[in-house]
Write a protein that binds this DNA or RNA. Structure first.
Lengths: 239, 239
DNA sequence: TTAGTTATGCGCGAAATGGATATAAGTCAA
DNA sequence: TTGACTTATATCCATTTCGCGCATAACTAA
């Protein structure tokens, strides 16, 4: 049999295929720190560890559709900003069988985070921290700082997610996905500082954001403060 | 049957799975313009169109290993810088069956490009251009400017690839993957200008690159020029 | 020796940035 | 009503970065 004949008869349907899944890194902010939604693993493997919400991709299901379905069914969040992050395919990432997982990054506003936690009681919002190393896994912890062991390669996935978000924050519009429709400049700066983990210079931050053309002034101001109320802005896409 | 019982018995191995493939965007430079390696499709579907080198992922094969295997077997290139690009999973991207493809970006030096073309005679290096739209597909053409029709969603993949490369070029080290081990600052600038499609200011480019700490002077100079020979540099990773 | 060509280095003005400070606008308590 | 207090907003200035022109260096060719 020549190579051409072999190739003509080659049918990948005859060969075993890896299973294909999606995993969701659902990030929000709480108390000025990034948190991620994790669920407990009750059974083997990695019983007792904490895992990202995920699910298998249907044979007639788009990748984005699968991510949206997992978001609805397993995280109880009706809507969130979702973007594809990276595809993880190491041979040993799941001891049961070969599973290749397309990871998605999802950003939740404070309201969406609260709704997700209410709809999916088994999930918890774990504090997310990143070691100083240029790459490597992120770490999850409770509010009190007790480390939460992560299942599978989900620490690696979280590391990629938080670094991607940090890298895109300044030049892209992702930061607004963590804010309500109306927000103040201080709230926007709080979001950036929480994600980056560093303090930012206020006048410089204001200038940069206003020059980007992303902020539409509303003329309205926040209410209920005991000090001078800040103006409320709305996000508008760059034309 | 309760949901818990259903989930306990649920075995994704029982359900049909999408096929999983890798596709390689192998970019190089020729005549100061980006080119991509494409192969002709002889059979249905998309017969007569041009496609990226690709292959199915083995059940016991890493994603990176699959990309490396395709690079060796179908593109004849022994080594190239490879990085994961994006995963394409639209339902209709292949009319035969559901195929999810993990696209990889590969960068070839001029020598590697020539070697690949010699080893894999069916491939051709097609000129790659990007319409002005912020997203959408890229276009391939012959040296004379005649358009080459692309198979499947490979135009979309090429669009993502070239935009990713443009975005990373300035702040990352990918540019050096298109150069031989020893190179001049002018060659480095030529690479950047070819990828970005714009002219760059020479003194500013020199300053920025030298300040990055990526360039190790060798003291040696290029030979065979009919003008002042430029110093040869070597790429060194940032410490 | 001279013209031609490119590499390399220098200097200047524009623009962006960090940081401090002044002023504005609200609440709250006396 | 007034003044202390807090935060928003605007202004100003020193520093850095960047774009850009130009002078000088180094080599070949005639």
């Amino acid at each position: 049999m020549t190579e051409a004949e072999f190739l003509a008869r080659y049918d990948p349907a005859d060969y075993p295929r890896p299973a294909l899944a999606v995993d969701l890194v659902l990030l929000g902010l709480r108390g000025g720190r990034p948190v991620v939604l994790l669920g407990p693993r009750a059974q083997h493997p990695h019983a007792g560890r904490w895992a990202l919400p995920g699910g298998f991709v249907g044979i007639a299901e788009d990748l984005e559709a699968a991510a949206g379905r997992v978001l609805r069914e397993k995280a109880g969040a009706a809507q969130a900003y979702l973007e594809q992050l990276f595809t993880f395919g190491a041979l040993t990432r799941d001891p049961r069988m070969r599973i290749v997982s397309v990871a998605y990054l999802g950003l939740l506003t404070e309201a969406a985070l609260a709704e997700a936690l209410a709809q999916a009681p088994s999930l918890r919002a774990a504090a997310l921290t990143l070691p100083a190393a240029p790459d490597g896994p992120a770490e999850a912890a409770t509010e009190r700082g007790e480390g939460l062991p992560l299942a599978f390669d989900h620490g690696e996935i979280l590391g990629v997610a938080l670094r991607r978000l940090r890298g895109k924050l300044d030049y892209s519009e992702v930061g607004f996905a963590l804010l309500p429709p109306l927000f103040t400049l201080r709230q926007l700066q709080d979001v950036h500082e929480a994600i980056l983990g560093t303090a930012l210079n206020k006048p410089a931050f204001r200038r940069r954001m206003l020059d980007r053309g992303w902020l539409a002034p509303t003329g309205r101001h926040e209410a209920g403060t005991s000090y001078r109320p800040a103006e409320l802005f709305r996000f508008q896409k760059t034309p």
